[in-house]
Design a protein around this nucleic acid. Sequence first.
DNA 1: CGATGTCTTGAAGCAGTTCAACCAGGGTGG
DNA 2: CCACCCTGGTTGAACTGCTTCAAGACATCG
Lengths: 241, 241
Amino acid sequence: MDKRLNDGQDLRVPAICRACDARHRGICGAMTAEQLAEFSRFTTRKKIGAGTELHGQGERVISYANVLRGVVKLTKVMQDGRQQIVGLQFAPDFIGRPFASESTLTAEAATDAEICAVSKGALDRMVATAPDLEHKLYHQALLELDEARDWMLTLGRKTAREKVASFLHLIAAHYDPECNETVAFDLPLSRQDIGDFLGLTIETVSRQMTKLRQEEVIIVENNRHVIVSDMERLARIAGID
Amino acid sequence: MDKRLNDGQDLRVPAICRACDARHRGICGAMTAEQLAEFSRFTTRKKIGAGTELHGQGERVISYANVLRGVVKLTKVMQDGRQQIVGLQFAPDFIGRPFASESTLTAEAATDAEICAVSKGALDRMVATAPDLEHKLYHQALLELDEARDWMLTLGRKTAREKVASFLHLIAAHYDPECNETVAFDLPLSRQDIGDFLGLTIETVSRQMTKLRQEEVIIVENNRHVIVSDMERLARIAGID
DNA sequence: CGATGTCTTGAAGCAGTTCAACCAGGGTGG
DNA sequence: CCACCCTGGTTGAACTGCTTCAAGACATCG
């Protein structure tokens, strides 16, 4: 039986959660109807515009969030302004760092997005008593760690060309987990953000994109829309095994 | 009362664990005497020489380990041989990736080391039933994620000089958590490894070390022994806030 | 004491940055 | 409705920091 359908009829589950896309895929999937009901008293679903900051580097954190739609970027900055994106969160990812009062990074919407924010206290309390929830969070942390380490290889050892291809591959793979031969999508990041993600300048990103376009690895429309006709080829250029 | 002393007299705790340095600091700290007794039937304490591989990238993993002494490096390689160190594990760190059968990286002793290996099955079973243990593992995963993201900033946005200084700072801070003004230590990595950690060539690492030596930021003896006289200054050069 | 591996130093080359100009699209106001 | 500007992206030319390639110094160990 489809759990989602079943759940949609379970009136103990809050209405807002019953209508939520991320209900089963995200951390909420680990909660019972009763827990959700209790929990939802501390959650707020909201739409945020691109550029909205959820919390800043060095700030005290008072809430966590789940991404429901859009992309949130996690960035670190040095005093002199140099910037590095250290993570991209897609739906239904969890945003926040349990067991730390201060954030070591900034979380900011890269695109228009929708999130379900929850007070830190409420989640911390629930984590302390619900092993299933902590298990789910642990699971996501491990996935993020895998991603971070993959990206370290990209940052440390790949050429600009490979980096840009790796980025395109990452986004494409996210939009099409089936990994079809051809994929089309809108880039969730500006050229500046792509540069900050890849450890490159905006000019280098632009030049490499142009080259990939000329070689017909990608087709670009309106600067943001990208069509990859041969994912295999892109992966090869990206240096992905 | 000192828990360690107390524990040393508790005969339900296996002898090998009673004598273990990492007993309370590592994940074992989350276990009861009974759990340890059960658990120790599946653990093997062993000394391994520098260069010993614990598991390789792409291999099936059959055991986890705790570092008791020495340093273990986690590396990723591309088919053409380019290599990146994506993590350094010190005592009492846990090595392994729960919930994955295959490893996406290689774990290899960077120095002579001592580890406490445990069969994957035994730990997985215990994790499934002991929330405290999973909590501890989750906690470490989050710390590793923090470290990985810090390093992404280093890899993506720092100059060779700042990278080398950052590395020295990292090692120094590990040997002296008190953060005294002056710290002396042996480098746990060869120049090649340092390069692979920083995304630089061995020559660039060497040149930057020479420069730092000439500026008297560090004193180097026998290539491996380093003395930092002014940690503040090193941090400034490393671009650490 | 030579042999081997590790580290340093030097010189030349190149990938990516920097600086500057240009272009396209989209909104604003005269 | 067009001139204007403003933002985000592209392109070009000169520069530079890191790499590459090659040789030499140093330590360690049979």
